[in-house]
Design a protein around this nucleic acid. Sequence first.
DNA 1: GGGTATTTGTCCGTATGTATT
DNA 2: AAATACATACGGACAAATACC
Lengths: 266, 266
Amino acid sequence: MANPMYRQIAEDLRAQIEGGDLEPGQQLRTEIELRDHYGASRNTIRDATKLLAAWGMVETRPGQGTFVVRKIEPYVTTLTGSPKVPILYGEVDDSAAGATSGTERLLYSTDPQVEIQKAVASVGRLLQIAEGSQVISRHQKRSIDGTPWSMQTSFYPMGFILKGADRLIQADDIAIGTMKYLEQTLGLKQVGYRDWITVRTADGPEASFFNLPPDGRVSVFEVFRTAYDQTGTPMRLTVTVYPTDRNEFIVNVGDVPKDGDGVVPA
Amino acid sequence: MANPMYRQIAEDLRAQIEGGDLEPGQQLRTEIELRDHYGASRNTIRDATKLLAAWGMVETRPGQGTFVVRKIEPYVTTLTGSPKVPILYGEVDDSAAGATSGTERLLYSTDPQVEIQKAVASVGRLLQIAEGSQVISRHQKRSIDGTPWSMQTSFYPMGFILKGADRLIQADDIAIGTMKYLEQTLGLKQVGYRDWITVRTADGPEASFFNLPPDGRVSVFEVFRTAYDQTGTPMRLTVTVYPTDRNEFIVNVGDVPKDGDGVVPA
DNA sequence: GGGTATTTGTCCGTATGTATT
DNA sequence: AAATACATACGGACAAATACC
């Protein structure tokens, strides 16, 4: 016996899933049935399904059963350029739900939650201000087609308010865009940005908002975007968290064909 | 009791780790000691440590004990630009190991493993050739400072060989770089590339090479880089797999300050 | 709403195997 | 070889979530 029994059972079930014997969304046999089928104890069957869950192939629902996971249609964000999704702020109109046609996707964003905070170490470092100094924090949760998609928090130096950009501390959307607003009020123009991309396990609130399984299987992208003004000074830090199971990114460098068919690997 | 016992125990141990009572690398008390301490059964203690392992906070080693994980110093790759690490091919000279000084990091790469393969769906789509047509595959495993870092496979259309780029099927490094070689032999010049970034769970060989825990906790970046020539035709597809626990990425857009202090969030 | 059957979740005790020191 | 520590496996009991009548 090279492999332990629970692993062999997991491999067997994996083969059934990958072979198509078990469709995505379909329910597996119950633990009792699997116990009798494999001649193992229920706990060993549970070890096998736990391993499959760690592989991201099944999920268990208390009171219901064990199901083959349905892959979420990933949303692709192009980091080198602007997103092309129509954005809807405020309350969702339920009557309009389900009316999105074709491949067009609807992005819904909560109104910004504005707070004055002390800069933690990472925020201070990236904004090049002292750790602990005051910053404006604008937080939004965003969904696409009803699926929780990302949580975004933008940080601005507190000095922007004193210099006249007082709309930053109002808890509503700045329709023309904050970058244009800062240009009009403070003369700050964004000339470039740097994205820092990491992956980590989701914390509690994130797992809750994104509906992630509690076993820590799905991690999240954390993207730190530092925007620089014409003097090379950081003018905004945007931290966005995306679950890795429903998000992918594109980076275009140099002369490349337009996005379209043939850019998606799967 | 809002939470089950194993979860409360896990939270308690987590607080000890985050509070600094348990240092990274330090051994936890054994399962038997924890069982007596918390008044639970050994199986419940094991459920708690399994949860901590899923959170990426501890790792268990058979015959040794349970240890607080040591965070790996992440390696940062700038996607918009060329890497700046010195590359060493072939066998490693052990006598030189440990002699790297300062912040300089040593990249070691295996000799390319060259194969002729049929293009799978994703390779065919990104290279814009028919699925199942022949491609040259050049695979390398790479380490930084002795730590397994990435697995990279480049795919070229088979036609390149017939047109004279026959060094592509030799299993050694092309010192001047394959891009320059293709320019010299075929007149193909890379004018840009597109990176497609996804995250998925590691498969068996990947988990083995990268030394990842078998519980599926650590996932991997999979970056598909399609290089385009002056006619806008894909000339190479490079698929690189990086463990997410030791890799981060940077994307620079527009006019940004040089990399250096203040670009790292943590 | 209530009650019941089904299914997974939690917890226990025990025994044995395997890896490491 | 022996001791230690985690890994695997069993069987049992009860709890909690869900679905259905």
